[in-house]
Write a protein that binds this DNA or RNA. Structure first.
Lengths: 354, 354
DNA sequence: AATCGAAGCTAAAACGATTTAACTCCCCCA
DNA sequence: TGGGGGAGTTAAATCGTTTTAGCTTCGATT
């Protein structure tokens, strides 16, 4: 008597849900038929109504869930997007993420998040890992980008003209104009500037926009009133430090235009500690309009970036890139408009409100 | 002459990377051998050194990357964790996420994020979608949890005793003690409380802890000085609203213990607008110690939750649950300790600093 | 009576890995 | 001469789908 050859089942296979083949067996049909009906493929047009009903109701009854890997393997698509950000726990990235998520999940996609914390090796490695995971597309938020990949790539605030990538960017010229006009309109002439870190992809474009805007208005940008953030953390301490240095330098100024809200907060604290009042002695304009900007004390005047919207646009764009329907190229850059939000940290030169 | 039967290749198959089989063909070996060597499986022990070298160098040369789906399909594991949070763009969740990410990526896992925005249908649906995607485990952050799933589940700040799930929670009794002791030590007796929204999983436990702590100190908790946040947004406006109402009610109080930093910020603004100074007239204690707490003006005294650490622990725990090595059950609850961070929004009753 | 076409369904080949149970040599020893 | 055993390798099944190119039937048309 030959030994009974019980085929070894996979360890976890026991309580797994029913497979397509099992379903087909139960119905006395072939997997092909079941597959075709369940996916509402055009081939199913010739399947009789009766059979279709049977299949669909059986699928419901046995709670059939298609195996994701089998399907992805066959279809060569993962319905997954990789998102790379500098840091998950900072306001900028999470706002964008929130917009990205909105759109992706609605479209039936999921996404991986990876944060590189400005480490060059990770900036290189994560996109590769994403590809190993067979993502259908990649969104890079505020992250330098040089790769050329075989999936669509969209950056948010990326300014490299990499081939095949679409950049979703703020209209920095408008942003600079809004802020500078506001300050100049209030009578400010000696304006200090806090530039972003060298690694931040917006730093350079924004700075150029500022130079252009000030030039147009005949405002001089003094190098002595220009400081630059340094350091990786997303903490107000960076703005605090440079502003303290600025005050110590004794150069007179009546306004600060900060690179972002976080540094503006640090700046305000530094000014306070130096005995300067905000906004009576120094007006401060932030950038981004993160959640807490409105609830600072005083509340922060700032240039709002529509971050959620930028995320949504990025998601739409990357998905559009996946459908090979529309020709790939399209626009290389999508620009969104900022908005000036005037709150309490700016006032007319010499004002003494309160 | 029979028509040449060129097997139709898949659309995108062209520039895809080399497969295991192709690699094996090039080497004149079988896929089995190559697989075994590349995965350093025990079976490979009997493969000659020479062959191994050949295989590994060929793999490098042709930049072989195993197909993720094929592997997952076979191995029944995805190296992916699903994380569900109320909202990606809020400080609490992102801090936890940051800790989760740290650990998961190091361990070779990726994670999906989905935010339910307190919609009951999504709280139900996302875990299902995660399972459809064959995640190996789920982490639920500040999210009510009732399911019993076939993968390990870890909650952060979950307080339901669902079977098979591990809860990572703060020691709320300690937290309440720290805060109340601090205030009482400063002479405060009439303390107002801002309770969390009903849907927040910490609300109830924290409240009970507060009742216990006050009872121990003989402090009376007046219902008239107790307000509750309402609304979904993660905005200070919620705290602002209830505090405004509190002030209007004319009940005397000299301190507020808020449910979180966000509502504390709103509370401070409301107090200010009512002509009350913080901390001279009213001391305020927040909760969480989110990034911006230290940079409020005045900076916020608060109870710090080690959110990143909680995330890391959650990640560790869920991965431990996946390895079937260690027996599944283990502790049902892992407690972490809060820490009181005294800053500028609290001072002794009757103080007039500045 | 042979042919055609439509209707309804399916066989079988992918997709790209992992894994178990052999299988082939070849040497050595009785 | 036979066979035991190790070293080195692999055939083939499996994971669960999708999809293309047919395969049956059967009634209708020439």
């Amino acid at each position: 008597m030959p030994p009974k050859k019980t085929p070894k089942r996979h360890p976890r296979a026991s309580h797994r849900s029913v497979s397509l083949k099992q379903l087909a067996d139960r119905l006395g049909l072939s997997p092909a038929t079941v597959s075709v009906v369940i996916n509402r493929s055009p081939v199913a047009d010739t399947i009789s109504q009766e059979t279709k009903k049977l299949i669909l109701s059986a699928a419901r009854k046995f709670n059939y869930r298609p195996n994701f890997f089998a399907r992805s393997l066959r279809m060569q698509r993962s319905l997954t997007i990789g998102v790379i950000v500098p840091e998950v726990s900072d306001g900028y990235a999470t706002m964008v993420l929130s917009g990205i998520e909105d759109h992706l999940l609605q479209a039936g996609y999921f996404y991986f998040v990876a944060s590189h914390r400005h480490r060059a090796d990770l900036i290189d490695e994560y996109p590769r890992l994403f590809l190993d995971r067979a993502v259908d597309g990649i969104i890079a938020v505020d992250t330098p980008w040089h790769h050329r990949l075989r999936v669509p790539v969209v950056t948010v605030s990326g300014h490299n003209e990499a081939p095949g990538v679409v950049n979703v960017v703020l209209d920095h010229e408008l942003a600079a104009n809004l802020a500078i006009n506001h300050l100049v309109g209030l009578g400010h002439r000696n304006i200090a500037f806090i530039k972003g870190q060298a690694f931040s992809s917006d730093t350079e474009v924004r700075w150029n926009a500022i130079l252009k805007a000030t030039a147009q208005l005949g405002i001089c940008v003094s190098p002595k009133l220009t400081v630059q953030l340094e350091g990786d953390e997303a903490s107000p301490i960076l703005g605090y430090n440079v502003t303290t240095a600025l005050v110590k330098s004794q150069q007179p100024f009546t306004a600060i235009f900060a690179f972002n809200d976080i540094s503006a907060m640090g700046a305000i604290r530094a000014l306070r500690e130096s005995g300067l009042r905000v906004p009576e002695d120094v007006s401060v304009v932030g950038f981004d309009d993160i959640q807490s900007a409105a609830y600072q004390n005083p509340s922060l005047t700032t240039v709002r970036q529509p971050l959620r919207k930028m995320g949504t646009i990025a998601a739409e764009t990357v998905l559009r890139g996946i459908r090979p329907a529309s020709a790939r190229p399209g626009a290389k850059e999508i620009t969104v408009a900022p908005e000036l939000v005037v709150r309490e940290t700016t006032c007319a030169l010499g004002c003494e409100e309160l």
